[in-house]
């Protein structure tokens, strides 16, 4: 079972709550995904509409653990302040730390990320940093107090899958005992299965489910893919080879020429 900051998770699929066609579909998709962790955010609340209050009651009814994010933050100060506000509202020390450095790719500003992670970990937060597959940055994040790393597969919302297989494999091999969650860029269930087959501990999905024609069915498909990939990893995949190897025994082949 996956352990993150002392919490055991049966499901290795974490689900984002954004961009669903309706609150009802979001609830159904969370149930279909069997996710135990759902990411949430903080945004300006209008005193008239109170949209946030309704959303929060829907999430609470689902009985999931929430992972608040600092999405949209471009500086250390913004991210740290947002984390403080999230801890108060959501009542959890968990924070998915995002410090965005570039708007076209939403690539993390890894320098700001490390700085913010160090501040927040020092204040008792349990930080889930959205990072790249860079090994040196990963080392710095661990040194800053992170006990989980969340490398991107591809830019957020791009659905391109695992862009840098070599880098991600190197990261998995280098940090054998650190929970690694692929966050961002996964587009279809086969990408999620691939991440699990490579030995990643979990995947965080949002757009691929929320923007599917049938989000609930896609959530179930991702749940199956993650379970299949995880089982395959545990079962020990065969080594690929360049040339064919007959699967049917050659000995005893009839001579029919």
């Amino acid at each position: 079972m996956l352990q993150v900051y002392g919490t055991e998770l049966r499901s290795r699929l974490l689900l984002g709550s954004s961009r669903f066609p309706s609150p009802a579909v979001l609830s159904e998709a969370v149930r279909a995904s069997r996710a135990q962790v759902v990411t949430v955010s903080l945004r300006r609340e209008s005193s008239g509409e109170r949209a946030g209050q309704g959303f929060w009651s829907i999430i609470r009814e689902l009985g999931v653990k929430v992972l608040p994010n600092t999405a949209g933050c471009h500086s250390v100060k913004e991210a740290v302040t947002t984390a403080h506000m999230a801890r108060e509202v959501f009542g959890t020390p968990w924070i998915k730390l995002e410090v965005i450095g570039e708007d076209d790719t939403l690539q993390p500003d890894v320098f700001g990320l490390v700085e913010a992670a160090r501040i927040l970990a020092g204040e008792g937060f349990e930080v889930f940093p959205y990072t790249t597959e860079d090994l040196v940055v990963a080392d710095r994040l661990l040194d800053a107090g992170c006990r989980v790393l969340m490398p991107w597969g591809a830019p957020i919302g791009s659905g391109r899958g695992l862009n840098n297989l070599f880098g991600l494999k190197a990261m998995r091999a280098h940090f054998r005992d650190v929970p690694l969650v692929i966050d961002a860029g996964i587009g279809v269930p086969s990408h999620a299965a691939q991440a699990m087959e490579l030995g990643f501990d979990a995947v965080l999905i949002n757009t691929a489910v929320a923007q599917a024609a049938d989000p609930v069915r896609m959530a179930a498909a991702f749940a199956q893919a993650v379970e299949a990939g995880c089982a395959a990893r545990e079962a020990g995949p065969m080594e690929p080879r360049d040339m064919a190897a007959p699967s049917t025994p050659v000995i005893g082949t009839a001579f029919l020429r």
Binding site: G16, V40, R44, S47, N69, V89
Partner: peptide, 10 residues
């Protein structure tokens, strides 16, 4: 003054 509330997030 910023007043923030829970919202959808990825």
């Amino acid at each position: 003054l910023e007043v923030l509330a829970p919202m959808q997030g990825g």
